[in-house]
């Protein structure tokens, strides 16, 4: 029964990535290589981030919210954006359209993130006899994260790869990218600064990720139009 529960949670956590890959044209253009590369870049970025966190952050004894430390953490969080930039622009990809490139990169990035952050707790926790909602919520969080990272990748590809975009949209694109990139810090603030419970935080994440996804979709479509 507990292995069953683990299985369920794993489906919820990692299923959407697979579904996304197989349902969208990504599978038709065989972009798996791009995704794998993005995942590798993610691992490298995570390592750099860890080193930075270990170097610059103090270990707080209590779980309180320290604004200065959090700011530092948010800044370190921007290493993610740098990593994404590297994955989008510097890696040599097989000839695939920009349209698919950012999706493939985002997917690989999100999958690596899920594996790194969620697989181990899931393996340890969800197999135990004790039932909690945590792992189901964690799975939903993984879904929100996938949406968020693909949005970020989309905005990134707009910023760095697309040359002829409407001038009026540029500040909006940057603003949205900024919001999406600081989202981990925002949720961390909600959870620890305001003491929100896990379900509420997950609900917020789900909501914002959907909103940001719709916004970035619209932006992407708007940028697409003149070229089309």
């Amino acid at each position: 029964m507990t292995v069953f529960h683990f299985f369920n949670c794993a489906i919820l956590t990692f299923g959407p990535h697979a579904v996304y890959y197989s349902a969208t044209p990504l599978s038709e253009y065989d972009t798996l290589g791009t995704s794998v590369k993005a995942a590798l870049v993610y691992l490298g970025t995570a390592l750099v981030k860890l080193v930075c966190l270990a170097t610059f952050l103090k270990v707080s004894e209590n779980d309180s919210f320290d604004p200065y430390q959090e700011l530092l953490k948010a800044l370190i969080g921007f290493i993610d954006v740098a990593g994404l930039y590297f994955a989008l622009t510097q890696l040599t990809h097989r000839n695939i359209s920009q349209n698919h490139k950012f999706q493939a990169v985002g997917l690989g990035w999100a999958f690596a993130d899920s594996v790194l952050h969620r697989l181990a707790p899931l393996w340890v926790g969800a197999r135990g006899l004790e039932f909690t909602w945590d792992y189901i919520l964690q799975g939903i969080e993984a879904n929100a994260n996938l949406v968020l990272i693909i949005s970020l990748a989309a905005l990134g590809s707009l910023m760095w790869l697309r040359k002829n975009k409407p001038r009026t949209l540029i500040p909006i694109i940057y603003a949205c990218a900024g919001i999406v990139a600081t989202m981990p810090s925002i949720t961390s603030y909600l959870r620890r600064g305001l003491g929100w419970h896990f379900p509420k935080v997950v609900g917020f994440e789900l909501f914002t990720s959907l909103v940001m996804a719709i916004i970035s979709w619209q932006l992407f479509a708007a940028c697409q139009r003149p070229s089309a």
């Binding site: 069953f4 529960h5 135990g128 004790e130 039932f131």
Partner: peptide, 8 residues
């Protein structure tokens, strides 16, 4: 060990 369990 007392576990709170979910049902099948």
């Amino acid at each position: 060990n007392i576990y709170q369990v979910a049902s099948v």
